[in-house]
């Protein structure tokens, strides 16, 4: 038996799934889809920061260009933490291209001019 909290709407249904894949506790169909995705292929956006040489801040915020597999989060964090950039950086500049060959870029989420 596995339990999920559905995050599609504020209601937050607790949905339980048994070994046969049968679900209970969902308030609507969207909950079923949510749990199916979470069971088979959970994906997340990852946000963090990288070091930046700048007059004004020490860290540049970044995000993955699309969702990555939940299991890849810590491997991608390691790559992010190897990087150091220098100002100027503009919002949505690519900081790491195709990180770990996952087909996802790491992009800046803030403009830091100097």
């Amino acid at each position: 038996m596995k339990e999920f909290i559905c995050i599609v709407c504020p209601r937050g249904c607790k949905i339980r799934v048994n070994e046969q894949g049968e679900m209970e506790g969902y308030g609507c169909k969207r909950g079923i889809t949510y749990v199916q995705n979470e069971m088979t292929n959970p994906k997340r956006m990852l946000t963090s920061t990288v070091k930046i040489k700048s007059k004004i801040v020490n860290r540049l915020p970044i995000i993955t260009s699309s969702e990555i597999n939940k299991d890849d989060i810590f491997r991608v964090m390691e790559e992010i933490n190897k990087v150091k950039v220098e100002a100027p950086i503009y919002i949505h500049d690519v900081i790491i291209k195709n990180v770990l060959g996952l087909g996802v870029d790491i992009i800046a989420t803030r403009t830091i001019r100097e």
Partner: peptide
């Protein structure tokens, strides 16, 4: 928010 319980704690 529920999404934070799930994505910040459960994950």
């Amino acid at each position: 928010l529920n999404r934070n319980i799930v994505q910040c704690l459960h994950d």
